[in-house]
Design a protein around this nucleic acid. Structure first.
Length: 507
DNA sequence: GTACTAATAT
DNA sequence: AATATTAGTA
């Protein structure tokens, strides 16, 4: 299967009112052997998309008559094609909005060729994904996909329902037209929803994240109930535990954990992660992106900002802390890793467009073999941290858990809960985000993934010892930016901050 | 009675 | 596999 995918030539529709940009992007796409169809405005694009077998739509956000999101809406309504937005608007709110609308990927504008290298995966994902509503019947097509060839074309016609009537209340959705009976549809944890879930947890803090609170913070009552959240949380915890258990021992070359992480990243990610075409290997996990259209969570505490929850007793019952050996905690995954990418302006490191994807849509969520990784921003994935904190050890750095020299960076933020604005990385007592906890892991991780990813990210030379503080600096910067980008918070990332972090490092 | 989590059902 | 529901506790 994989092989075939790689041989398929994907057709991309590019839309941008700026001709220069249009040409530029087109050439970038061609560089990766995509077939390109361009349009200078959404209207033209809409009229042409039906005649061509477009696989993916790449559009600018800010455009005269119809902006990228409106355009996306139309595309989604008629063709259900994955839409990638390019925008110079780097605001978190916009990003969230776009994702909420169902955009599969949000690229920050100065784009570079690499940004498009793997977007073909979105095409694959969209065909694989099982859409929420009535589209289930298209399963047949999915099957077809597997068999390869079908990859192209074919599935456009799902017209979606158009009955958005007045049922503002819940109840209506789901069912497509046919389905019999008004059953209560199961909640589908789309990327957007899952990310929202993760963000809520980050905001709350893993230790204190309980169903009700998460539910409140997510604030998407139209779609979820507390029970839904509880169920998802249970699954998420299991996932975390799995990762922890495995990674726990992860000694130097063990290839064990790498399995987990690797798969998790890989599959989760879809976006630019693998280098090229080729495989997604084991198949099993296939990322499935879906659009999350319920305009829904735009509401109130959208950014997780406000909200005020009650104090809550200390360590609730976060079982994961208790039961399992949390010794190993501190795991990293950190980030993003996945692709670090270029970062236009900032210090040369940090995140670039891809990161966003990394942070937001990676998904694959937790599946058994692969994970729940979305977002993977430090705080979340790294629940190790919670482990520590629960012990109240303000431990920073070094994490004793694993044998090999562990090196975990701790971001100790100053403020506790007074975050103004919903930020996430702030914190609780010892809020720290660990990056690799030990060299072996980091290297291993790097290697493991390496085959398919851009080596750049991981690795980041952890040969410390010498004074490569520079590398660390940039790494930390990137990490931080990532968090920031993920919406959580905006603490600056100035040199002093980084400096202070470095001073805590064990070397 | 509420909310949590683990277990179990679908 | 992913979600939902149930049951035992606090």
């Amino acid at each position: 299967m994989a092989g075939q995918i790689s041989t398929v030539r994907f057709k991309i529709l590019v839309v941008d009112d700026d001709s220069t940009c249009l040409k530029l992007v087109s050439s970038m796409l061609k560089k990766w052997n995509y077939e390109v169809v361009s349009a200078s405005c959404p209207v033209d694009a809409l009229s042409t998309v039906q005649f061509r077998d477009i696989d993916i739509v790449v559009t600018d956000l800010h455009m005269p008559k119809m902006n990228g999101l409106e355009f996306q809406k139309e595309i989604d309504k008629e063709y259900k094609l994955p839409v990638i937005i390019m925008s110079s608007n780097h605001k978190q709110a916009m990003l969230m909005k776009a994702l909420a609308c169902g955009v599969v990927f949000y690229m920050k504008k100065p784009v570079i060729p690499e940004d498009f290298k793997n977007i073909w995966q979105y095409a694959v994902a969209s065909k694989t994904a099982k859409p929420s509503r009535n589209i289930e019947r298209i399963e047949s097509i999915q099957v077809e996909n597997n068999s390869g060839s079908s990859m192209k074309k074919g599935k456009h016609g799902n017209k979606k329902d158009c009955k958005r009537k007045a049922h503002e209340k819940k109840k209506d959705d789901t069912e497509g037209e046919n389905s019999t009976v008004p059953k209560k549809a199961k909640v589908v944890w789309t990327d957007a929803l899952h990310n929202r879930f993760l963000q809520a947890i980050r905001y709350i803090t893993l230790e204190k994240a309980v169903p009700k609170k998460i539910y409140e913070v997510m604030n998407v009552p139209e779609l979820l109930t507390r029970d839904n959240v509880a169920s998802h949380l249970q699954k998420y915890r299991l996932f975390l535990k799995r990762v922890a258990d495995q990674k726990g021992f992860a000694s130097r070359n063990s290839m064990t954990m790498d399995r987990t992480l690797k798969s998790s990243f890989a599959s989760g990610y879809c976006n630019s992660l693998f280098n090229g075409h080729e495989k997604q290997t084991s198949a099993t996990s296939n990322p499935s992106f879906q659009s999350f259209k319920p305009t829904g969570f735009s509401s109130s505490n959208s950014a997780l900002t406000s909200s005020s929850w009650s104090p809550r007793y200390g360590f609730g019952q976060s079982s994961m802390l208790g039961g399992s050996t949390q010794a190993n905690v501190h795991k990293p995954i950190y980030g993003s890793s996945t692709k670090p990418i270029y970062q236009p302006n900032r210090t040369g490191f940090g995140l670039g467009s891809n990161d966003i994807g990394t942070n937001f849509l990676s998904r694959g969520a937790m599946s058994s073999s692969n994970s729940m990784h979305t977002i993977a921003t430090p705080s979340v994935m790294d629940f190790g941290k919670s482990g520590n904190s629960s012990y109240d050890t303000p431990s920073n750095h070094i994490n004793e858990g694993t044998g090999t020299g562990n090196v975990s960076f701790s971001f100790s933020n100053s403020n506790r809960n007074n975050n103004s604005g919903g930020q996430i990385m702030n914190g609780n007592n010892n809020d720290n985000a660990s990056v690799f906890d030990n060299i072996a892991d980091s290297q291993q991780f790097g290697q493991g993934v390496d085959t398919q990813t851009e080596p750049t990210n991981y690795q980041i030379s952890y040969h410390k010892k010498q004074g490569d503080n520079e590398n660390l600096t940039s790494e930390l910067n990137g990490l931080y930016l990532q968090a920031e980008n993920a919406g959580l918070g905006n603490q600056g990332c100035d040199d002093d901050f980084v400096e202070s972090l470095l001073s805590d490092l064990p070397f």
